[in-house]
Amino acid sequence: MSSLRSWLNSESPESRAQARAAAIYHGWLEFRTNRLALLGLWILVLLVLIAIFAPWLSPHDPFEQNLSNRLLPLGAEGHLLGTDSLGRDILSRLIYGSRITLYIVSLVALIAPVLGLFIGTVAGYIGGWTDTVLMRFTDIFLAFPRLVLALAFVAALGAGIENAVLAIALTAWPPYARIARAETLSIRRSDYISAVKLQGAGALRIITRHIWPLCIASLVVRITLDMAGIILAAAGLGFLGLGARPPSPEWGAMIAEGRRFILDYWWVATIPGIAIFIVSLAFNLLGDGLRDLLDPKSGGSS
């Protein structure tokens, strides 16, 4: 352990891997001091574990209906969080629902930033007319009402998780494009880029190999902060019946289902909402922590 630590703390790293590991280690040490961010991280790690081990963790089959056991209260025997209107175990459905949440979040987190990164870096690096056109395009998308537009997209494409993901991603990329462009503008004229250019690298190579890696940090921060909004949007679409289809244990859809009984059987709709709240809170905490760490100048929270 101590030899690993001294390797990580070495003043003169001997390899690129060692330097990189040291940088990550020191970042982690700093991150660790932020209790709330750490809490957010642990919640998300737990969520991933729950999603992976869902079949072993859940006490019942999330789709198994049992009408004689419908709307059981919290703490009922064998059903810790009660059952819903079809007698399905709410805890098991929550556990399986974490898979859907993670699926949506990771898909959006893949599509939107990559699209934004591409548009932003191309605009920033090439400049001139390309820049103007691409950025006007971005501004236009930025001025749109996101939820309503996502609604219209899903309405045209048809309900379903994939379409919900697509709709959210299509409305989520503009901020990433702006960030990527700003980063590109600040490094475009730096000496190392000129050096690479003199070695004969083309625009494509410079953008993908030498500009993209430097945009990643600020994008990651933004993605983490956006995740909460994405989860809420996905849950909203699910609640409207436009996301996951009915039997699927998507948290937003579960709220919609329990909504009819809210006055008499409050837990059916309330508990999935708490799950959504905890996960998006975790993303917000983690995002705040990462922002303070990676981007100290815009530390709005401190």
């Binding site: 909460a228 809420l232 849950a235 909203g236 609640f239 937003g252 709220i255 909504r259 809210i262 006055l263 409050w266 709709a269 309330t270 909402g273 959504i276 709240f277 998006s280 809170l281 993303f283 917000n284 905490l285």
Partner: peptide, 22 residues
């Protein structure tokens, strides 16, 4: 503010309805 950023608005509406009306 943090809670406001993290809470699904439709859920808060439901709970509000449950508590203050129901």
């Amino acid at each position: 503010a943090l809670i406001g950023y993290s809470m699904p608005i439709f859920w808060l509406g439901l709970v509000g309805l449950l508590v203050f009306y129901g």
